[in-house]
Design a protein around this nucleic acid. Structure first.
Lengths: 118, 118
DNA sequence: TCCATAATTCGATTATTGTCGAAATATAGG
DNA sequence: CCTATATTTCGACAATAATCGAATTATGGA
């Protein structure tokens, strides 16, 4: 993943309202929710909701599919997983955070970032 | 982690320049880099760099420590790991993404988000 | 004390983003 | 065809964020 793409994805969920929408869809799972349901659950005005759904959809973090008068939105887990992989890749050049080190503990700092195999 | 905190962290790295700074520090590891080194490597003007370092530092994604005339900045792995844990928590209510399912494959969608134990 | 270097703060400008009422579009049903 | 409902688009405004030259602060060495 390119850094510009990653920054766009992060900016998309770097807003309280959009993060709430995205988290709701992640917790809901692949089945997703209708736009109106999202709006009711989170208390967002229709025009504002549409603006944010459009933003999340444009960057590929969610997908929407029309079902008669409703549109069902669901999290795109592939996109999010790619982002997580980017964020955790090449941490510490793979050299600084070996499981065991000689000598006294070098500090309580958490290191490294890791993510399950995809 | 609260959603507002998570959104602030994501917004902080949801900007190309700040993401480049943060990724450079993640790849560098706990040793970190001097501000001037970061500026040289990424080609950022001093005032602009300071603005972004201050932002990342304020939200807790990096830490800076003065060493004589230099300030050494390093990624805060604890903060980032907390953010990753938040993003991957409670995915699909734990019910929709069991390793094996009966019936035909329900689609190629990636599910769920997972992160190593902390 | 004076100078050089590292980094931040200030100030002004420009650009982008978020919100939401009102109007428009899409779909279903009588 | 008309009405009701779901959603988006439009338009205008307010608020926030990003950039960077110039001035300022902090530190070390001659």
């Amino acid at each position: 993943m390119e850094i510009l793409t990653a920054a766009e994805l992060l900016a998309a969920i770097g807003h309280e309202t959009r993060l709430a929408i995205f988290r709701l869809l992640v917790e809901t799972g692949p089945g997703g929710l209708y736009a109106s349901t999202i709006g009711e659950r989170l208390g967002i005005a229709p025009a504002t909701l549409s603006f944010h759904l459009s933003h999340l959809s444009r960057v590929g973090l969610i997908d929407g599919q029309r079902e008669s008068r409703f549109i069902r939105y669901a999290a795109n887990f592939n996109t999010m997983d790619g982002l997580l992989a980017f964020l955790t890749s090449n941490c510490c050049q793979g050299t600084s955070c070996l499981p065991s080190m000689d000598g006294p503990d070098q500090g309580s700092e958490r290191c490294c970032l890791a993510h399950k195999e995809s």
